[in-house]
Amino acid sequence: MTTQPDFTPPPNAHVYPLHTPRGTFAVVAHPAAPGVDPRGTALLLPGFTGSKEDFTLMHEPLAERGYRTVAIDGRGQHESDGPEDDESAYERGELARDVLAQAAALGARNTPVHLLGHSLGGQIARAAALLDHTPFRSLTLMASGPAQISDSQQQRVKLLRDALAVMTMAETWEAILAMGPPEEVGGPARGIGGPDLLRRRWLGTKPAQLLATGRQLTTEPDRVDELAALPLPFHVLSGASDDTWPVPMLDDMAARLKARRTVIPDAEHSPNADQPLRTAQAVADFWESIDSPPATETDA
């Protein structure tokens, strides 16, 4: 059987620890392409059971559009450290404050960054913006809905929580594989890299992080109206189908936010993995609409 190759960062990417007052976080950063005028920096947050590697195929096309991209493992996620058993360290407010510290470490106090979160990462990004929107130039919610996940996905998260109560991470991994690879929640997320990477990032993630964030996904309240009150440009992007938050629900959220809405054809809950070039193009188009100065009579 042919397997996917293990993860290799893009040629111009840098893998390094990002030091902040709230801890050190593992990142993959990619500069704007040589010869392209730099347009800004984007901070990319992965989803539940995911990792910074999930954005691998988006770095280079975004670099060609002038964007420096920084994908990050959150606290207790893959290669970023965190408590093994203390779920309080992963409360939504704690993770949101981590994002504010990450943005500050990337220079957001001087030049706000574009914030993008996939799935769980979108809800953490939302919480960070609600604490303080000033470090951010915009907010993109990728396959990330207004409140708790769908009933079917809640059942998957419950199965995972029940398994972690009686099994180690390694034992849980084997049990999940025996059931087949679920999408995004309840098991190893489909993403970039081969089986070795997926197993390594699963074993690197802290059980308390999965337990706490899994609970958040099943209980998250609707905070769209609070978010809509912020003076930020919003972008709601998803695949053409999604069983974690149904597409009509994402359509409605975008309308409530007065957000740009993008649906990526032939993609599901992970458009960054399913259709990375189309997704990168849509994201860059949104960012450029904000970063470009408005046309004047002499520009027309």
Results as ranks from 00 to 15, higher is better:
residue 15 V to Y: 02
residue 15 V to M: 10
residue 23 G to C: 13
residue 37 D to Q: 07
residue 38 P to C: 10
residue 46 P to Y: 05
residue 50 G to C: 13
residue 53 E to P: 09
residue 65 R to D: 04
residue 68 R to W: 03
residue 68 R to P: 01
residue 70 V to G: 07
residue 75 R to Y: 10
residue 76 G to V: 08
residue 92 R to Q: 12
residue 97 R to D: 06
residue 102 Q to L: 15
residue 105 A to Y: 09
residue 107 G to N: 04
residue 109 R to W: 06
residue 111 T to D: 11
residue 112 P to L: 10
residue 113 V to N: 00
residue 114 H to I: 07
residue 115 L to H: 04
residue 117 G to M: 00
residue 117 G to A: 09
residue 119 S to Y: 08
residue 130 L to E: 11
residue 130 L to A: 06
residue 130 L to V: 02
residue 131 L to T: 05
residue 133 H to P: 00
residue 136 F to Y: 09
residue 137 R to H: 06
residue 139 L to Y: 07
residue 140 T to H: 05
residue 141 L to N: 04
residue 142 M to K: 02
residue 143 A to Y: 00
residue 149 I to N: 01
residue 149 I to V: 15
residue 159 L to V: 14
residue 180 G to F: 11
residue 181 P to C: 00
residue 186 G to C: 14
residue 193 G to W: 03
residue 196 D to R: 11
residue 197 L to M: 04
residue 199 R to T: 04
residue 202 W to H: 11
residue 205 T to P: 13
residue 206 K to A: 15
residue 209 Q to V: 13
residue 210 L to N: 09
residue 211 L to C: 12
residue 214 G to H: 10
residue 219 T to G: 06
residue 221 P to H: 03
residue 224 V to E: 02
residue 227 L to G: 08
residue 229 A to T: 13
residue 229 A to N: 14
residue 232 L to V: 14
residue 238 S to F: 01
residue 242 D to S: 11
residue 242 D to A: 07
residue 245 W to D: 00
residue 250 L to A: 08
residue 253 M to F: 11
residue 272 N to T: 01
residue 273 A to H: 08
residue 273 A to F: 03
residue 274 D to H: 12
residue 275 Q to D: 02
residue 276 P to G: 04
residue 279 T to A: 10
residue 282 A to N: 02
residue 285 D to I: 05
residue 286 F to T: 00
residue 290 I to S: 02
residue 290 I to F: 06
residue 295 A to P: 00
residue 295 A to C: 08
residue 300 A to L: 05
